[in-house]
């Protein structure tokens, strides 16, 4: 039996006296799009940094596709991580940035070159590919950052606000790409505040509040939990589970 794509066991992170993540237990099957929701400061980015091994947990364990996140060399091949602020070098052109990442990941340059062109075309970046990134718009930077995240076909994708700054057309391109990857078996851990994106894409939703997972299930199941009358939206559900009385229940 295949191990879960993402698994955490009592994962906890504290900063001095501040608890960022209380005790997170996750088990996400391969091919799932997991919508990770929560208000600002709930601990979403902390969780993502723990899952990439970029931050050490205070206690508990985490693994991706059965590989402990502490095994940095193996994890680098398994995960593709897009942080909220696109990690790009302004002095490079878009194409150079992608070729640089290909080199760092030691991918076959010839084979990947074709893929780079495809992805640049898919995201309408061909014409600007040889311009310096420092001159790109926010949306263009986000698209280049997304492409570099998926270049090595990672089985697990961690995306932090991937549609932030994108115009509707670009957002649509990105959502289609995420759906395609999921169909091909990629697990997508998607953190965002844009609830319609989660509603449209996610198979499962997890809501983090004050470092604690307060709701988890399919979008319908989580929505049902908010209201009994059946008219509730995911936004209603989100507000309900992240309000103090509900969260303390």
């Amino acid at each position: 039996m295949c191990p879960p794509a993402i698994e955490t066991d009592a994962l906890r992170k504290t900063y001095g006296n501040t608890v960022a993540l209380q005790s997170l237990d996750l088990s996400i099957e391969a091919g799932t799009i997991y919508g990770f929701l929560g208000p600002n400061g709930a601990g979403k980015t902390t969780t993502m940094r723990l899952l990439t091994g970029l931050s050490d947990p205070t206690s508990g364990t985490a693994s991706l596709s059965g590989t402990p996140v502490g095994d940095r060399r193996s994890i680098a091949d398994i995960v593709g991580y897009l942080p909220e602020s696109p990690p790009l070098y302004g002095e490079f052109s878009g194409r150079e940035q992608l070729e640089y990442v290909v080199g760092l990941r030691m991918l076959d340059a010839d084979r990947t070159a074709e893929r780079i062109e495809e992805l640049l075309a898919q995201f309408d970046l061909i014409e600007d590919a040889d311009r310096r990134i420092s001159g790109y718009s926010t949306g263009m930077k986000q698209k280049v950052a997304y492409i570099q995240t998926i270049l090595h076909d990672p089985p697990v994708l961690l995306l932090d606000e991937p549609t932030a700054g994108l115009d509707p057309r670009a957002a649509r391109q990105l959502k289609e790409s995420i759906a395609q990857l999921s169909e091909a078996g990629t697990t997508v851990f998607l953190s965002t505040h844009i609830l319609p994106v989660v509603e449209e894409l996610a198979d499962t939703i997890g809501v983090l509040y004050d470092g604690e997972l307060v709701a988890e299930g399919s979008p319908d199941a989580v929505t049902e939990r908010a209201e009994a009358d059946g008219d509730a939206t995911l936004e209603d559900a989100f507000l309900a589970v992240t309000s103090e009385p509900m969260a303390n229940r």
Partner: peptide, 15 residues
């Protein structure tokens, strides 16, 4: 390191 999230999630710190 500049852009640590990219570099450290891509290659080993020794590199």
């Amino acid at each position: 390191i500049d852009q640590d999230a990219l570099v450290l999630s891509t290659v080993h710190p020794r590199a």
